[in-house]
Design a protein around this nucleic acid. Structure first.
Lengths: 154, 154
DNA sequence: CGATATTATATTGCGCGCAATCTAATATCG
DNA sequence: CGATATTAGATTGCGCGCAATATAATATCG
């Protein structure tokens, strides 16, 4: 039995790809980002930029750290991302005069207005029926439980 | 009512972050990759490299395209990734003499042997109880249904 | 058999994610 | 008040993901 030829028959099924929980989450996340891409492209956005706008549309202005806390992203990701959004005219970034360590991220008119166009997006994504409403709600709830578990132990 | 100040009270709840299905999948995927990182680091692997090994441990050698098909990744991702794995001595890459377009990816002894060490990983990841077995099975099933839905319409 | 189409992989360029490190501002404590 | 610690962001470097494009080999069709 040559290890480099065919190595599937042994008993360690824990390593089978179709047994992994992480892999379908990874694949689904990639595929959903791919599904959003053409819709977001029309708005000149990437998926993480769209997430930042979702946060800001709920409440603005915000500190960089608040955005990162909501999206589970750190400044190494957010700082360059926000700079690109600033260049695109969607947000402004300015140091807080009260505490010069902080950076206030505000929506520009352009960034605010984009919300109207973005409203179509969740509908379009959901339109191709992939899951029943019940399945989707269940999935939502369970993945959030997983997130809280992963975040709690960190 | 200033659009740039506070914009949460309007009726388009579809854009609320906590209503999104995609976002928890995105966040959970990032967090799981983070959880794997310290374990995989000991083996000198990244998470996608680990996935490639999972595929090869089930059956090797494999064409690049087969690996990509299983992992939903294209050659733009896989070619450089496989080159890094080749440099690390985990796999070999050689053109198929039968059809010079194809590249055969084989496991080296080092790549095969790593499997023993990798066996510990799923256990360690699952050890911190985040979901019940039932929830995990449910999640697995539903996410796969989502993947099939997303893949079918593509 | 030669032109055209298809297939398999490679390359380029850009935007993440994130660990590690750095910088500067505020907070704390003797 | 001055030294030390903490906090908020920025920077660096590397490895993905992937669209778009390129290249080369095989298949197909007239």
């Amino acid at each position: 039995m040559n290890e480099t030829e065919s190595t599937a028959q042994s008993g360690d099924e824990v390593l089978r790809l179709d047994r992994q929980l992480c892999f379908p989450l990874y694949a689904a996340s990639n595929m959903l980002t791919r599904a959003y891409r053409p819709l977001l492209e029309e708005l000149g956005l990437t998926y993480p930029q769209y997430l930042v706008l979702l946060v800001l549309w709920e409440r603005a202005p915000r500190m960089v750290g608040e955005i990162g806390h909501q999206l589970f992203l750190d400044t190494g990701t957010l700082t360059p991302l926000l700079k690109r959004m600033e260049t695109a005219g969607l947000v402004t970034r300015q140091r807080d005069p009260e505490d010069e360590r902080r950076v206030i991220v505000s929506l520009t008119d352009k960034g605010s207005t984009l919300r109207e166009a973005a409203r179509e997006i969740p509908l379009k994504i959901a339109s191709s029926p992939k899951l029943t409403l019940c399945e989707a709600e269940n999935l939502h709830e369970t993945v959030w439980k997983l997130i809280r578990g992963l975040n709690g132990q960190a």
